[in-house]
Design a protein around this nucleic acid. Structure first.
Lengths: 294, 294
DNA sequence: ACCATTTGTGAATAGTACTCACAAACCCTT
DNA sequence: AAGGGTTTGTGAGTACTATTCACAAATGGT
């Protein structure tokens, strides 16, 4: 593919308009010798003299003027076409299909949806909440939002929340009849509210302290698949629950829930928006990322 | 000067038309990965997806189609403009201003004028005969024809005649009453027809033999500035004349003129067409050079 | 004739288009 | 569901050229 002359032709127009290599060079942000080389190369390739010049004056030849007459409108059209296309980048449109962790949907996405809809009226967000680790491409999604630790390595990721911290909580009423656990192994003797993700197994509580890392399959009188039900049960004293510190925070403040094993619950990477590598980012998704990213 | 995308935009059109990277690559004479890189680079620079593709199908996106609609005519116009300009190279036109030694005008140029005019009907030859050493640029000439030895070093030269040889001639009638000179110094005792170039002084006869070089300011009853008058005078026995061997040759054959001091008149470089260095050669002048050059 | 400024040029360097050698993706066939 | 043929995608290396640098040459005003 022979390198074409669009930039050289543009330079030629600039020289002809300015009637000066020096002023054209300044306009284009290159050196005068770059212009000189380019004009010479152009004339050699065409085999026609396009500019008559001395060190005191520059003017297009008759052949040069014929070229100018045709080039100017054509280059203007191309520039217009390119500007239109790049302008689309600033007015995103179309559908974005997202799969979002339910907690992320309420804590990360929901608060920003109004702002986003107003800013980008032509974009349609198609949101599916799903806690499981979805194969984006297979399931036809453009992007997802989940905890960083659950995202495949080859995805492009953007942080959309600060680090999260889990909490093991119980109501004061629960602790009236049960001693507070001081070590994760004590949990096996406690009544714990289990959580199940769709058809997957129950959620194991992962606890870390320093270099120690324990995974506990707790037992209890309740297994739920809805976070709100879990929260309600904990408040009612049904048992201990494992949830986001953010979700429990209001109840800590009111004294309705009490936290235990806090030193075994360090923070971990929060939510990230992710999409498959090796894809030109659609403008609408880029806009969403800009809106959500920290 | 950022390299523009004319070649890349042309490639994009080719891909969109062929609906295939592979076929477009074949059409453009490059590898498929060159096309792949180019399309990716284009989309990254514009920040917009232009082509939707899998390994089985390629199609322009809506944005791509908008770009195509504007690019196609514009690129066609540019190609037309370039074709027109390069087409001028094969159909030279315009005026060529020549300053030509009168002898060269008749012996070199005149015989070829008809052929040239027929081959290049759009070229106008503006011929000025002048024996003096004209400053081409100052006097507004594009080129000149003169003896090689009179041409400035920095000119571009093309030989347009074979070597020349001068001759000192006299009529048999003249020699009836004058002994033939056997040495250049004898010339001072002869009646010689002087030649004057315009307002310059009379022409000195320059004679060489081996390493000897003599310049003789001859005397005589006649000073002319026209070669034909000089020839006529010599034929009439007015005196000796110094002229081109070629000009005198017909009269040698007929016996009307006799040559003397032949060994003092060696050949020297003939006529050359010349023009100033560092100039893009106009197509019309290039055509003339091709016609005249040996 | 001199000077300031512009264009012109050869050589070196920086930047990139393109190729190579694959990998990844896709869809048809079995 | 697996395999195969063909197309697109990609990283690294190479070939090519745009551009700069360091001048030289040219021009025209004083």
């Amino acid at each position: 593919m022979v390198r074409d002359e669009l930039s050289v032709l543009s330079a030629f127009l600039a020289v002809a308009e300015e009637r000066s290599f020096t002023r054209a060079a300044k306009r284009l942000g290159v050196s005068t010798s770059a212009i000189s080389h380019a004009m010479r190369g152009l004339e050699e390739r065409f085999g026609v003299r396009l500019l008559a010049r001395t060190t005191r004056s520059v003017a297009p030849t008759p052949a040069g003027e014929q070229l100018i007459a045709r080039l100017r409108p054509a280059l203007g059209d191309i520039r217009g076409a390119v500007d239109l296309i790049t302008g689309l980048r600033d007015r995103p449109a179309g559908r974005v299909r997202l799969v979002v962790s339910p907690i992320a949907a309420t804590t990360v996405l929901a608060p920003k949806l109004g702002q986003f809809a107003r800013a980008y009226p032509d974009v349609v967000l198609d949101v599916t909440t799903d806690e499981s680790r979805v194969d984006l491409v297979a399931a036809g999604f453009d992007a997802g939002i989940h905890f960083g630790e659950f995202i495949e390595r080859d995805m492009i990721t953007f942080r959309v929340s600060k680090d999260h911290r889990p909490a093991i909580v119980g109501s004061p009423r629960y602790f009236e009849s049960h001693e507070k656990p001081v070590h994760p192994r004590d949990l096996t003797s406690h009544r714990c509210i289990n959580f199940r993700h769709g058809s997957a197994g129950v959620y194991r509580w992962e606890l870390d302290k320093g270099k120690q890392s324990l995974t506990v399959a707790v037992n209890g009188p309740l297994i739920v698949d809805d976070v709100e039900i879990m929260v309600r049960a904990a408040l009612d004293g049904v048992g201990l629950a494992f949830m986001s510190e953010d979700r429990a925070a209001p109840h800590f403040a009111s004294g309705e829930l009490v936290r235990v094993l806090e030193d075994w619950c360090p923070p971990f990477p929060g939510f990230f928006l992710y999409y498959p590598r090796q894809r030109q980012l659609p403008a609408a998704l880029a806009a969403l990322i800009e809106t959500l990213r920290l």
